[in-house]
């Protein structure tokens, strides 16, 4: 076999028929195979340092994966302490709150602190004493002083909520969420700060808000901009979003754009009050793009099965993926 033809084969520049001949030739003897082996290695080496891999882009993907695991590791190592904190806090609530209503409102008469809580799978609209409308997404908690007195209207959020703030220029409205404070006069916006998330994010729909954090100067948002505060890097990033994306969950939609499957599943767990057990390494790295428009969990699973490398088995609240 001519060396030239072999090189052409390695470079994938042969027609189908010629290719077949080369394959036959390599398979004809150990000697031929060995000859090919060295030529292939030399050809491979000759391409070294050609910038064929987008190193920046692929490293960003790896970094993303690494960050997720680090949070998990941190959670795991803090679990014993967190357990004590949660228990301590539950007991506090138990002794101090005379009434726990069915809707999840915890009203503490002594301190005047009102707490609105939504469990997994349930979102709810709430009207605050000043007339501000809040839609609390699933698995979220909003605390505020019942009277709303003083020069500030302050609320504390874990989870996600959409706000339509009643205008009152004399008393700014402030949402405390994680490391972020969102300060507004009268406007509508969305804040998301689930503890499993890597960032706290505020999306402005209409009006104007100011984002404060401990890590830099305050930032003013324009409508349809999102401020993402990365909890690890402690940096605020501003992104543009579509009106549909901004508060899609309010209309019962879940929109994902090149989102890591792990994040998608986290959102689904909260929304449908289910638990995913992932038994496939491949799934972790899979990025999903798609919209679930008011689907029930079975419909969601069917869509996922068609559009991504997922097989599932449902066992009560548990869904096993492989």
């Amino acid at each position: 076999m001519e060396e030239k033809t072999l090189v052409k084969y390695i470079e994938n520049r042969l027609e189908y028929d010629e290719k077949q001949l080369v394959i036959e030739w390599i398979n004809a003897s150990d000697e031929n195979q060995e000859h090919y082996n060295m030529l292939k290695a030399k050809h491979t080496v000759s391409a070294f340092n050609d910038p064929l891999l987008d190193v920046d882009k692929t490293y960003a993907v790896i970094k993303e994966r690494r960050k997720k695991r680090r949070i998990k590791e941190a959670l795991r190592s803090w679990l014993p302490v967190a357990g004590v904190l949660v228990i301590g806090w539950l007991m506090y609530d138990f002794f101090n709150s005379p009434e726990t209503t069915k809707s999840g409102i915890v009203d503490n008469v002594e301190t005047g602190i009102v707490e609105e809580v939504t469990p997994k799978g349930v979102s709810r609209a709430v009207t605050l004493p000043d007339g501000t409308e809040v839609v609390l997404n699933v698995d979220s908690r909003l605390r505020y002083s019942g009277a709303f007195q003083g020069s500030l209207r302050e609320v504390f959020l874990t989870g996600e909520a959409y706000f339509e703030v009643k205008r009152d220029t004399s008393r700014p409205f402030v949402v405390h969420a994680g490391d972020m404070n969102v300060k507004v006069l009268g406007t509508s916006f969305n804040v998301r700060s689930y503890s499993e998330d890597e960032d706290t994010r505020a999306t402005l729909v209409d009006g104007s808000v100011e984002i404060e954090s401990a890590y830099g100067v305050p930032v003013r948002l324009e409508p349809l901009q999102t401020a993402l505060l990365d909890r690890q890097d402690r940096r605020i990033e501003i992104k543009r979003v579509s009106a549909e994306e901004a508060v899609s969950w309010k209309e019962g939609k879940l929109i994902f754009r090149e989102t890591l499957m792990e994040d998608v599943l986290e959102d689904l767990e909260r929304r449908y009050d289910v638990e995913f057990v992932i038994r496939s390494e491949v799934l972790y790295n899979y990025q999903y793009t798609g919209t679930f428009d008011n689907l029930n969990i079975d419909e969601v699973l069917r869509v996922l099965k068609i559009s991504s490398p997922i097989h599932y088995k449902k066992e009560g609240k548990k869904i096993i993926l492989n």
Binding site: A47, F48, D50, L52, N285
Partner: peptide, 28 residues
Amino acid sequence: LYRLYANNLFIIARSYLRDDFSAEEVVQ
């Protein structure tokens, strides 16, 4: 380490697998 080696490892994987996607997955 990644920046030193990833590109050349990708070139090796790509050469033998003859498939960019699989090669990228291998390196990652």
